[in-house]
Design a protein around this nucleic acid. Structure first.
Length: 485
RNA sequence: GGCCCGAUGGUCAAGUGGUUAAGACACCGCCCUUUCACGGCGGAUUCACGGGUUCGAUCCCCGUUCGGGUCACCA
């Protein structure tokens, strides 16, 4: 008994979209391998010529890279069992299919797809489309028809009785009656293998020890097992993952909103948060109640036994929270750069204090895409209504605010420096000397400066962000507005 | 419809033949406060149902219901 190194593979079909379900498979595959110091392999399953999408493979590389899921073997970096792109392995599949045919475990079928569809209508009793029409045609007839150039597919010859079972690492023992199994197509008429066949051949040749995939493959896994048996290959571990579903309980899809990695990133979510989020969809660390884990930490604690069976609902609420956590702990310099990239386009005319802005934003932002709205005060100069100054708690209204700003303006314009500490001091003094409540002073100042109901920071921070000149200018305008209207 | 799988609060979930059945998100309330936010504190809501097995079932078995998956020359 040789002990093999744990190997998993991510085998996406290049569709141009990285669905969160796919990404989670990749994550778990990566984690299972790394938790056991094994290898994580990338294989491109491009056997469907009709679905070929230009540039789709790059989406896969880019996403994996953004998420930190680095592979040990793959089309771009090679490896001992390449090539890692299925369309480059066509001869191999043909060879193995021929072997099955000569063994009697597969057979050529000349029925066209349309013919089968017609046949299906008349035979309602049949549980599936294909009626095994060509299963027993003679070798002579096969030769005659192939020689005549008739196109055909290779089908797997399923046992007609008995049952097949296997043990899944997550779901346990699963058994199906062989008569339920269709004589599935292994090789299409264009010579390309089907997923079902290429997958088995490649997983074996690439020495994959754990086949990790969505539970939608659970019921077809017995067919794979029969294939392994026909070849006399060792059956690998199967690790089926519960589905990720939308809030309506259905398989996650377009109508649930953003469901691809790129959609999520465009919505303002950080890759780290997305990775952390999907790690916890269908898996939990057990007694450890923490939920924020970096990829590195996950590599250490991930274990197959923690995987759940029930489908998991993808929650944007939870994602929001996770994203906030990642923003809060992000290094300030990194955060500042993100803020700058977002703020610059909105506010290139007037200078603003980036450091202070980033500072007030970091503990408040949920998604990056929230930032433009939150900093709109940078470009909104005039108060839009007197309501803006009304505050019940501080017993403040527009008239009162006008009085306060009137008194405050000369003091502020006389202030030599314009920083947090000095503004703070000036305003504290103003409270005492003018006998005005702090809430009223701060409230009128903030409203007068921001001209916006909601701001990320308080009055002082807003003043610092806007700078002396801009602040005084706005206050003067606000005063005019309050007097006139 | 056949087959396969699943079921702990609204959501993610821990957990056990005897527990006050963790924790997180969301929600509600209160507090704090230069409004909102941020922060702090507290609260409500769960073992799908019916039979067994057992001294005792959320946990083990059977059935029911409900939910999902799958039945392609797609992966």
């Amino acid at each position: 008994m040789t002990t093999r190194i744990t190997k998993t593979r991510f085998a996406p079909s290049p569709t141009g979209i990285m669905h969160v379900g796919n990404l989670r498979s990749a994550l778990y595959e990566y984690l299972i391998a790394k938790a056991d110091h094994g290898a994580f392999i990338l294989r491109i399953e491009d056997t469907d010529r009709e679905r070929y999408v230009e540039g789709a493979v790059d989406v896969i590389y880019r996403t994996l890279d953004q998420c930190g899921l680095h592979h040990d073997e793959g089309p771009d970096i090679g490896g001992p069992n390449g090539p890692y792109t299925q369309s480059e392995r066509l001869l191999l599949y043909r060879q193995y299919a021929d072997q099955l045919v000569s063994q009697g475990d597969a057979y050529p079928c000349f029925c066209s797809a349309t013919h089968i569809a017609e046949n299906d209508d008349s035979e309602q009793t049949e549980s599936f489309g294909y009626n095994r029409h060509c299963r027993d045609i003679s070798r002579e007839e096969v030769t005659r028809r192939t020689d005549a150039g008739e196109s055909y597919v290779i089908r797997q010859r399923m046992p007609l009785s008995g049952e097949t079972s296997f043990s899944d690492d997550v779901y346990g023992k699963i058994t199906v009656m062989n008569k339920e199994l269709e004589d599935q197509i292994l090789l299409k008429s264009d010579g390309y293998p089907t997923y079902n066949f290429a997958n088995v051949v490649d997983d074996h040749l690439m020495e994959i020890t754990h086949i990790v995939r969505g539970s939608e493959y659970l019921s077809s896994t017995p067919k794979y097992c029969l294939l392994y048996e026909a070849f006399g290959w060792e059956i690998p571990h199967f690790v089926h993952l519960p589905l990720i579903v939308g809030e309506d309980g259905r398989k996650l899809s377009k109508r649930h909103g953003s469901t691809s990695f790129d959609d999520l990133v465009n919505d303002g979510y950080l890759p780290e948060a997305i990775v952390n989020m999907i790690a916890f969809l269908g898996w939990a660390p057990g007694s450890d109640t923490r939920e924020i884990f970096s990829l590195k930490e996950l590599e250490e604690i991930f274990h197959i036994a923690g995987i759940n069976k029930a489908p998991a609902v993808f929650s944007y609420n939870k994602l929001n929270w996770m994203n906030e956590q990642y923003i809060r702990i992000m290094p300030f310099e990194t955060w500042t750069k993100l803020v700058k990239d977002t703020a610059d386009p909105c506010f290139r005319d007037t200078p603003y204090d980036l450091i202070m802005l980033a500072q007030v934003l970091q503990p408040r932002v949920t998604k990056l895409s929230d930032i433009p709205d939150m900093i709109r005060f940078l470009t909104t100069r005039l108060p839009q209504s007197r309501e803006l100054f009304f505050n019940k708690r501080a017993k403040l209204d527009a008239d009162k605010a006008a009085d306060i700003l009137d008194k405050l303006y000369p003091l502020l314009s006389a202030l030599g420096s314009w920083n947090e500490a000095d503004l703070q001091e000036l305003l504290e003094h103003a409270c005492e000397e003018l006998g005005i409540k702090k809430g009223q002073i701060m409230g009128s100042l903030r409203a007068g400066l921001a001209a916006q109901q909601v701001t990320p920071g308080g009055a002082i921070e807003t003043a610092v962000i806007l700078g002396r000149e801009e602040s005084l200018g706005r206050l003067a305008q606000a005063l005019l507005y309050l007097r006139e209207v």
